[in-house]
């Protein structure tokens, strides 16, 4: 029976209207308004679903791991309520200011501490910054193969068969375990938690691991371990301009429009 790990991230609801977010240019941060709720990143919920489908078919154990600054427990416990067996939270000031690389490093160290694993699942990208690098980064730190943007994952003995989304369809890849798979939305809707699952999840004790607990090298964590420097966060100024193209007849107006578009090198 496979041991599976799913990395999940708590984020501000990505479906909140853009106007709910404010850019703090001095701190280089995007600040959600007070009323914006926290959710599990939707791609990560689909990663949990991918693991649950394998558990439905083969049994096994699912451990969800989340790294964050502050957790809303009734949100971050959703993977448990959906059917995961364990949840581990990574929380330490040392993790703060991380980029994709230092996040991947911390998660990889936590996964090493968990021990045995056959498949690690991540969402294709977190729905806040959409970087899409943490999954592959974890695989790199662990020295295992990874397959990205999967829409279907089958667990076979000693390997995993993955349908990977491409621009014009999908390709089928087999990869030996242990492996890391990132899951795309084409996998389908994640299941709803059941009330019994919610009640069990609410009672479940969730351990919190610090940098020391996972034996991490402080120089690889958070800001210290980041290799990307965010230079500027800003809100682009949108300009709307409307020009009415005239013409004696619809045909002439269309011809004038075509000329304009060609002048603007748009056609």
């Amino acid at each position: 029976m496979p041991n599976m790990i799913v990395c999940v991230k708590q984020i501000a609801d990505p479906e909140a209207p853009a106007g709910s977010f404010r850019v703090d240019e001095s701190a280089n941060q995007v600040v959600p308004a007070a009323g914006v709720s926290q959710v599990v990143s939707p791609f990560d919920e689909q990663a949990v679903e991918a693991a649950l489908r394998i558990k439905d078919a083969h049994g096994g154990k699912i451990t969800a791991i989340s790294l964050g600054k502050s957790f809303v427990m009734d949100v971050i416990k959703k993977p448990l309520s959906m059917g995961s067996d364990e949840l581990i939270l990574l929380q330490d000031p040392a993790f703060e200011g991380a980029d994709s690389r230092s996040t991947a490093y911390a998660l990889a160290m936590a996964i090493k501490k968990v021990g045995e694993y056959d498949v690690i699942f991540c969402g294709r990208q977190a729905a806040d910054w959409d970087a899409g690098q943490v999954g592959s980064g974890i695989a790199e730190f662990l020295g295992i193969p990874s397959v990205t943007v999967a829409k279907k994952v089958e667990f076979l003995d000693g390997k995993v068969k993955v349908e990977r989304v491409t621009s014009d369809g999908y390709e089928v890849i087999e990869v030996s375990t242990p492996a890391l798979i990132t899951i795309s939305n084409e996998l389908g809707e994640p299941r709803y938690p059941k009330l019994k699952g919610i009640m069990a999840a609410a009672k479940k004790e969730v351990p919190t691991w610090t940098a020391q607990d996972i034996g991490a090298d402080a120089s690889q964590l958070g800001t210290a371990g980041a290799r990307i420097k965010l230079l500027k966060v800003f809100q682009p100024v949108k300009e709307g301009k409307c020009e009415i193209i005239e013409g004696e007849s619809p045909e002439e107006a269309a011809a004038n429009l075509a000329l304009k578009l060609r002048e603007a090198k748009l056609i």
């Binding site: 416990k77 309520s81 938690p193 009330l195 919610i198 999840a201 609410a202």
Partner: peptide, 18 residues
């Protein structure tokens, strides 16, 4: 509300809306 109560409310909302 407890976590259990909040999670149930969210689950029911989500299910009904979709």
């Amino acid at each position: 509300l407890s976590d259990e109560e909040k999670m149930t409310k969210d689950m029911v909302r989500d299910f009904l809306e979709k």
